[in-house]
Design a protein around this nucleic acid. Structure first.
Lengths: 140, 140
DNA sequence: CGCGAAATGTAGCCTCGGCTATAAATTTGG
DNA sequence: CCAAATTTATAGCCGAGGCTACATTTCGCG
């Protein structure tokens, strides 16, 4: 029998958990963006921006509501709760840092934006802190 | 109607595609590692290292076989095809670069290993090239 | 105002990647 | 060499997150 390496398993588990959080984070961020732009987030716009069919967005919003991140009434826009807004701000901030770090090490801006969309969900708080410290050092 | 931003959609699509590739890449890399260690990859060891139940590993291996990345006979070990080995090497190399870059910007080694497991699947070839260039610059 | 267009909701289906439980084959040790 | 332990396979379930098709509600405009 192979001696089970807990560190390695932990890495895969974390990656899987991050994958399941990614959708939530994307939707919350997008709802926040749309609210800032138009005053409310509509299902159709959410679906369009995320590149999915509307029923998919409807289901996702239902999940956000279950998790206490958003509220909505039938045939009306979607709004974030305080908890949802807080998460949105966290996600947005992390996104900015990841993009900035990628650019700082020489990744072209558009590529950085594209890759950050996937990478950001896997950046732990400790790695994020290291990124921020690096950017601060480099700026000074 | 919101003006659809193609760049943003592309980012989300890429992230979703990367998520579906991630499992394949993890399994292929792990099979390669086990083959190097023990001469063959057994379903039980694969499952243990990835932290899943064995039927889950069996299903995943079936998929790899469908995709021409691995071969196996009932009750025998799993082996990579040439295509599978090539993918494994690519994945392994990318993993090393990602870990090295994280370390280079100040992420502690153990954290880098954990986060890399999730991040690596979202690093495009252009970003990878930028990482390599940065590491080379820094080393010189 | 009322009607057609647009937006939202609902139903139902698919695939994937987990799981448990159970069966079959293989390996191992006495 | 046979029985027990281990390993692998299979069946069947679940939830997530896609989709299409169709029903319903709201909105905008003539």
């Amino acid at each position: 029998m192979t001696e089970t390496d807990p560190t390695q398993i932990k890495g895969f588990d974390r990656a899987r958990q991050a994958a399941s959080r990614a959708l939530t984070e994307d939707y919350v961020e997008m709802i926040s963006d749309l609210a800032a732009e138009f005053g409310e987030a509509r299902i159709t716009d959410l679906a369009a921006r995320l590149g999915v069919a509307h029923p998919t967005a409807t289901k996702a919003v239902a999940r956000l509501k279950r998790e206490g991140l958003a509220i909505s009434r039938p045939y009306r826009g979607v709004f974030l709760t305080e908890k949802g807004e807080a998460l949105a701000e966290t996600v947005r901030a992390r996104h900015r840092v990841v993009v900035a770090l990628l650019c700082a090490v020489g990744v072209p801006k558009e590529v950085a934006e594209l890759d950050a969309e996937g990478i950001e969900h896997h950046v732990s708080s400790r790695t994020l802190a290291a990124f921020e410290a690096y950017l601060t050092r480099k700026t000074d």
